[in-house]
Design a protein around this nucleic acid. Structure first.
Lengths: 226, 226
DNA sequence: CTCGCTCGTTAGAAGTTATAACCCCTCGGG
DNA sequence: CCCGAGGGGTTATAACTTCTAACGAGCGAG
């Protein structure tokens, strides 16, 4: 029964080649639909119609709507991880990573929200996506460790307490040798930029007048000192 | 034809009393459904079934699904604004506001995401919700203005550039007399806490080990200095 | 007391996801 | 070269959804 194979990259048999080709076309249509109408409006029927085939044919390629979305989420993380890695390989520092993140998000806001937006209560990410997020976090941690050390903050402030927590709970950083302070900066990179970016993408700043890019830059700069 | 009235609070005629009573019960069921299955799974039919009446009867009370959701969003903002105002009236400072925000969000994560989560591409908030968000922002601005002034940051840094932008584009703050630095802190309060909170609520921290409350506290503390 | 309006009903159209059954044709092993 | 197994696509169907239309019954205002 031929190896289950499946790596879409190289296809041994012509059947598998055709199969993976159709799969990627389905996903392309899905991305178009998500970009214009959001993930909640993604319709398998509409995709099939666009591809000139009718309804249930798609179930040969994806187990269902959820399965397709899961695949799209995986591809989304993969895309972001690749962008980060390419930037890092190009010599980007933390500011460069912030830039690539913003451009990556602005290029397709709904893709960003598919990864970091409202969660579906029932949904649980498949274990292999956490591997990709770990890859992303590793790049951020590298950039944070390369930054000059920040001024120490008060001995008994909330920052110190959080550092102590991070000193013991650092499994999420893999075996990265960054000090707790760098771990905290990496988390700050994530949460602060996500805060500014997601509110901008969601349109909560429209009509307020100020430049979201400046706010983003200021938030990024805030990581330098703390 | 009796005044259009409608203020659900006091009902003149028994008909209007009954009507607003049914409306609020519909919204209660809707909130339950949203809390358990998310806003995208909200079903008018299911609500009608739960209330013992069949399908299209709900269209007497709401123009459609979107209209109901819009109403829920309005109520959500109203709820948050009331919580903030109550905290401020109780003498809460910026840290107190952060606490009420976190508890309000943790009490019903899907309600938080309904307001600040993934936006629906077509949807535009009705103008009266911006009035409520302005009310919320006013409370935050008051707390920010009451805080001791932070240390000045570098003359030509991103912070200074953003302050200059805020000095001219401050219409969103209404006629609040806060200096640009306080405006920036208010935006930081919003974006940084939203960043930490939304990622926590979305479950992106689960399995990472550290305590999200400590991260939240550290982010709040970061506003003191910058 | 009566007429009108509101409320709730059922029926139906146009969507959706998803399963089942069927058919054709390609592809690969003999 | 041939032929059968299975992959790919089809239609039919079920069970949903939102939402419109037409109809009946009862409450309440005048």
């Amino acid at each position: 029964m031929a190896e289950t194979a499946a790596s879409k990259g190289d296809a041994a048999t012509p059947r598998e080649r055709y199969r993976s080709q159709v799969r990627t076309e389905i996903k392309e249509r899905a991305w178009e639909q998500i970009a214009t109408a959001g993930a909640s409006a993604l319709s398998l029927n509409a995709i099939a119609r666009q591809m000139g085939m009718s309804g249930p044919a798609l179930y040969r390629y994806f187990a269902g709507r959820d399965d397709l979305i899961t695949e799209l989420i995986r591809d989304g993380y993969r895309s972001l991880a690749d962008a980060f890695r390419a930037a890092a390989d190009g010599g980007a520092d933390l500011a460069g990573l912030a830039d690539t993140l913003r451009h990556w998000a602005l290029a397709d806001p709904q893709r960003y929200f598919l990864l970091y937006g409202t969660p579906v209560p029932g949904y649980h990410a498949p274990p292999d996506t956490t591997a990709i997020t770990g890859e992303i976090m590793a790049v951020i941690l590298d950039a944070c460790a390369a930054l000059p050390a920040a001024a120490p903050d008060p001995e008994d402030g909330p920052g110190a307490g959080f550092d102590a927590d991070l000193a013991t709970n650092r499994a999420w950083a893999g075996d990265h040798p960054a000090p707790p302070r760098a771990l905290r900066r990496a988390l700050g990179f994530w949460t602060r930029l996500h805060g500014a970016l997601s509110l901008e993408l969601a349109g909560h700043f429209t009509g307020m007048g100020f430049d979201p890019a400046l706010l983003y830059a200021a938030e990024l700069d805030s990581l330098r000192s703390r």
